[in-house]
Each structure stands twice: as structure tokens, then as C-alpha cells.
Computed example of a mutant assay.
Amino acid sequence: MAAFSAADVKKLREMTGAGMMDAKKALEEAGGDIEAAQDALRAKGLAAVQKKSSRTAAEGLVGVAVEGTKGVAVEVNSETDFVAKNDQFQDFVRKTTQVALTMDKDDVEALKAADYPDGGTVEEKLTNNVATIGENQQVRRMQTVSVSQGTVTSYVHNAAADGLGKIGVLVALESDLSADVLEPFGKQLAMHIASMFPQALNADGLDADVIERERKIAQEKAAESGKPEQVQEKMVEGAIKKYAKENALLSQMFVMDNKTSVEDTVAKFAKDNGGNVKLTDYVRFQLGEGIEKEESDFAAEVAAAVGG
């Protein structure tokens, strides 16, 4: 009996762009493990690299807020997109994001226990929303960035309302230049981040497990080339360097010209404006990022989280 279903084959095809028979064979060889099957297809050159964002199933909103030199992003999930368009839900996300801006650290449990502007706590308001809206909701995560001087710029891609949408970005620029000079540039960087999905600020920040996974895929590709071992080693190292360059923010080609790295673009901006500018941190929250489940499973996860 197959350890996978027709739905799994369909999902793998959507994730990789591979043909039906290739996807089915990869799942058979991987014992139904979709991630392992995806790696196998990539190693054979039968799959394109897909961003995690293309395989998410959650609904809700990401809220972003900035005050002075500090900014925060908060993700609040719901079961359906219909609720995300609800004024009551949007008001909750907006006010919860403002509460998060006052927190000393990124702690969702502390955020839920914090005072809500309309009375009670954030969690009590959330519970009330579940009862009145009739759908489970969950405060999933928050992340703060700040600078000692300079600016934190926010951007929401395809905003559903002011400061609310499905992709929220914050950019931290440490600088001696004024905020009015930095803001337009910060907005361009934020748009780049929304579009290019960097995995870390620089190569050193990339997830070691992800790098190891990429290395194994590169090794399989190199082995299939039949070239001498020394050449294979160079092929693998070249593939890892290419991956790091394309996925670390500072080394990515700036989307506005696709010729200059983000790091060099920041340096040029600083020189042109006669000041010091350093891109020190960023946040990119995409709704449902990392949740790779069927919608029905996600609903059960939210229900369990709210019930627990």
C-alpha cells in the first residue's frame, strides 16, 4: 500500500513544478516523505527552488508599527481570509501590535498577558473575539527591531488596511542622517526584502541545517556529473557560496537595479548623502510562513492553541 496519496503527488508537483510521474516516483523512493522527495527531485534537476511562502496555509494578518527608533511586527492567525477582512479582527491586530511595541522583549505569552487598550488583557480580548466572530484565532509570533539613532522603516505589501497585510517588513538603519532622508531609502530596502525573501542579514546568519541540506543536494548533483572528486568538491563549494549570496540580504542584488548588492547600495547611499548608514537588522513576516499543512489541519492547530 502506498505511503502517500494522490493529494501528496499534487502537492509535490505544485511545490516543485515536476511532472506527475517524476513526483510519484520520488514519493515512492522517499516512502511518502514530501520534503525528502522534493530534495531528491532538486538533486536530479527536476525541481525548481521554491520559497516556503508558496506552500503556506494560514490566514489572518500581519501588523507592523513603528515609534521613534523601534518597530515591531506581529502575526495573528485566523481560520479563513473572511475573518481577516473583519473590522473587529483588524482592530484587534492593530491594537495588539501597538501593545507589542511597548514590550521589552519578543515574548508572545507576555504579549497575551499584557493589558489591552480597551480593558482586560490581550488574551481575554482574543477569547472574546473567538466567541463573537465565531472563528478561532491565534497570536502566533512577534519580532522587534531598534536602532540607537537613525530610523526603523515599515512596509506592508498589498496592505489590507493601514499597517496590516499578509507581508510585513521592518528595516533598521543605524545612521547619523535625519529620518526624513533615511525613510524613502528604507522603504526601497523594505520593498526589496518583501520581494526577495532573504533568509538572514548575512551569510553567517543562515540556518546551519538549511546549509547542510543544500550541501547534500549539491553533493548528489556533483556525484552525478561523473567528474573527478576535486572538481566535485569545487562544484559543491560553489553551489553553497551561490546559495549564501542569493539568500543573505546584504549580498543579494538590489531589486531596484539588479546590478549592485544591497550592501554596496547602502554604502553608496551613505556616501551620496554625506553620512554613516548601516543596515543592522530587518524583519520579514509573511502570513503563515512555516506552516505547511492542509487548511483543515491548521484549523485544528489554532483550535488546540486557543483551547489550551
Results as ranks from 00 to 15, higher is better:
residue 299 A to P: 01
residue 240 I to H: 07
residue 212 E to V: 07
residue 35 E to D: 08
residue 169 V to L: 04
residue 296 S to G: 11
residue 222 A to P: 00
residue 128 N to K: 10
residue 264 D to R: 08
residue 200 A to P: 02
residue 86 N to Y: 10
residue 231 V to Y: 09
residue 150 G to Y: 03
residue 28 E to G: 08
residue 112 K to A: 00
residue 26 A to E: 01
residue 98 Q to C: 12
residue 77 N to P: 15
residue 206 L to R: 00
residue 1 M to I: 05
residue 92 F to M: 01
residue 285 F to A: 08
residue 242 K to M: 08
residue 223 A to I: 06
residue 112 K to H: 09
residue 131 A to W: 03
residue 297 D to K: 12
residue 268 K to C: 03
residue 60 G to C: 05
residue 87 D to Y: 12
residue 74 V to T: 06
residue 103 M to K: 10
residue 226 G to A: 11
residue 104 D to S: 15
residue 125 K to T: 05
residue 64 V to N: 08
residue 249 L to V: 06
residue 57 A to D: 05
residue 291 I to S: 01
residue 206 L to G: 00
residue 307 G to K: 12
residue 17 G to N: 12
residue 169 V to N: 09
residue 99 V to E: 02
residue 65 A to M: 04
residue 226 G to W: 12
residue 308 G to R: 05
residue 62 V to Y: 02
residue 233 E to P: 08
residue 296 S to D: 11
residue 69 T to Y: 15
residue 97 T to K: 08
residue 70 K to S: 08
residue 195 S to G: 07
residue 247 N to Y: 02
residue 113 A to D: 03
residue 185 F to D: 06
residue 215 R to T: 08
residue 40 A to W: 14
residue 232 Q to I: 02
residue 279 L to S: 07
residue 105 K to A: 14
residue 49 V to E: 15
residue 43 A to H: 02
residue 104 D to R: 15
residue 215 R to C: 10
residue 52 K to P: 01
residue 159 A to D: 10
residue 36 A to E: 07
residue 276 N to E: 11
residue 264 D to L: 02
residue 121 T to W: 10
residue 301 E to M: 13
residue 138 Q to P: 00
residue 51 K to N: 14
residue 150 G to N: 06
residue 168 G to W: 00
residue 148 S to R: 06
residue 51 K to T: 05
residue 55 R to N: 11
residue 190 A to Y: 04
residue 33 D to G: 03
residue 189 L to V: 12
residue 128 N to A: 14
residue 292 E to Q: 13
residue 285 F to D: 06
residue 308 G to K: 11
residue 95 K to P: 07
residue 59 E to D: 14
residue 166 K to T: 08
residue 152 V to C: 14
residue 30 A to W: 03
residue 71 G to H: 08
residue 180 D to Q: 10
residue 199 Q to N: 15
residue 283 V to C: 02
residue 33 D to H: 09
residue 223 A to M: 11
residue 268 K to T: 07
residue 112 K to S: 09
residue 44 K to W: 09
residue 265 T to P: 11
residue 34 I to R: 09
residue 54 S to Y: 12
residue 39 D to M: 05
residue 306 V to K: 12
residue 77 N to F: 15
residue 189 L to H: 12
residue 116 Y to S: 09
residue 152 V to Y: 15
residue 60 G to H: 00
residue 283 V to T: 05
residue 133 I to G: 05
residue 111 L to T: 03
residue 245 K to P: 07
residue 74 V to S: 12
residue 100 A to G: 02
residue 113 A to F: 04
residue 218 A to R: 14
residue 16 T to W: 06
residue 60 G to K: 13
residue 163 G to S: 02
residue 9 V to K: 00
residue 161 A to R: 03
residue 95 K to R: 11
residue 155 Y to F: 15
residue 223 A to K: 10
residue 76 V to D: 05
residue 198 P to W: 11
residue 74 V to W: 12
residue 202 N to V: 03
residue 230 Q to P: 05
residue 13 R to Q: 06
residue 149 Q to L: 08
residue 237 E to A: 02
residue 243 Y to E: 13
residue 212 E to D: 14
residue 165 G to Y: 01
residue 246 E to T: 09
residue 135 E to W: 10
residue 116 Y to V: 05
residue 139 V to N: 01
residue 155 Y to I: 06
residue 147 V to Q: 04
residue 196 M to F: 07
residue 29 E to N: 10
residue 295 E to K: 11
residue 213 R to Q: 07
residue 15 M to G: 06
residue 92 F to W: 02
residue 287 L to I: 02
